[in-house]
Design a protein around this nucleic acid. Structure first.
Lengths: 221, 221
DNA sequence: GTATGTTTAAAACAAACGTTTGGAATAATT
DNA sequence: AATTATTCCAAACGTTTGTTTTAAACATAC
């Protein structure tokens, strides 16, 4: 066996640097430098830089997947009839699962959320394919619940509203540090991800619960 | 004078490639190759790659700024008392201003939104500083209206809800192409940005109008 | 012990990057 | 037409990138 410490050191350094600078902007030399390991160690253990990026995600996604499964079973939703959760319940379950992911740093969750946001926008091809395979199964029960709760929405509108939710979450979390910096110039507090989530959930819930669009007509002149 | 066509060709190619791949992932050689101009032309006309990135943004932000000013004056909001717009009005004004930006391609708006999303997340330092200076003035009246409409919200909560709105918009538009690809596997239609905006506005309006958070308590066990 | 897998060190690799240069070509001005 | 200013182009510059290689040291297991 011999669980190598080098692998963890590389992953620890990589996830921080990736979150700070992005994937392309982070060199293997800066990672191995921060991790205090040899440059060749990355290619030895992971094979390539792209494989390292995926490994960083995998360390978050695996426990998240487990937490979602556990959370769904703990509550008696899903199969039972008449026991329909509210949207707040579903969003709360998901965000709380996110916050429960065990991490090495106290900023672990925001790092993961930022990485997710980066992955969505930078969209490196290989990462997108990997996430579609790996993340989709984690997301499937979430989408299923949303569908169960909003039966009056058309498939199309539900799809887009779900994307709006994901967009708000990923975007906010991915830039939470920069946004916090801006806010500190006005107020004096330093919000943590948990606090932001408390603001985020009712916002998204109201959006999901909004009445359906029939015919939009916003012509002004 | 002599308005050089080369400058426009470079900008046209650059905005497409930046939107597709990101800033760091797009090389000057691929830009000049697509634009069919010499490699040195970028540094000759713009000075540096970073300056080119800012020039790409400037071509969108200048007309957007004008459109927002015009739109605000056309409607009699803002200064007048008793003539308070709804949130839907404000969001509609903003999104319609976005859609009115004159572009060279039919996908112009989604390209711009994607660039905005990239700028937010990739956060290149120089870009952030540039956008804070240039974009802030465009945004200020928008924020002012939001404040006017939601007087019951605390400054902090209003700030975050505004960020959620921006996040949803930027994120959705920035990945609208990829999302459309996914949707086409289910439905058979090809949504355009205008249609997505029609779904987006009521969603965001409901979120902004959601009752304020007092004390969040979602403990389950 | 020998063998196997891990780590480090140092160096080199080809490829790609942004940027610079000097002269040719073109346009504008006198 | 002659002169000046601007634009363009091919080539090269110096870095940095991810990756590979070779060698030696280290650990663990059989």
């Amino acid at each position: 066996m011999a669980i190598t410490e080098t692998v963890d050191r590389i992953l620890d350094a990589a996830e921080i640097l990736f979150a700070e600078k992005g994937f392309s902007e982070t060199s293997l030399r800066s990672i191995t430098g921060k991790a205090k390991v040899n440059l060749a160690a990355v290619n030895y253990h992971f094979g390539s830089k792209n494989a390292l990026i995926q490994a960083v995600f995998n360390r978050f996604l695996s426990p998240l997947n487990d937490l979602m499964v556990i959370g769904l079973k703990a509550n008696r939703w899903g199969e039972k009839d008449g026991n329909i959760p509210t949207i707040e319940d579903v969003l709360g379950l998901y965000t709380r699962s996110l916050l429960k992911i065990p991490t090495r740093h106290h900023n672990g969750v925001s790092i993961f959320m930022r990485l997710l946001g980066l992955a969505y926008t930078q969209s490196q091809g290989h990462l997108r394919k990997y996430l579609e395979d790996e993340y989709a199964q984690t997301f499937w029960p979430f989408l299923s619940l949303i569908k169960q709760i909003t039966p009056e929405l058309s498939t199309k509108e539900r799809f887009w509203r779900t994307q709006f939710v994901l967009g708000s979450m990923a975007f906010t979390m991915s830039s939470i540090q920069q946004l916090t910096d801006i806010l500190e110039n006005k107020a004096g507090s330093t919000p943590n991800p948990e606090e932001v989530v408390d603001y985020l959930v009712p916002f998204l819930a109201a959006g999901l619960n909004a009445p359906s669009v029939k015919k939009v007509n916003v012509s002004s002149d």
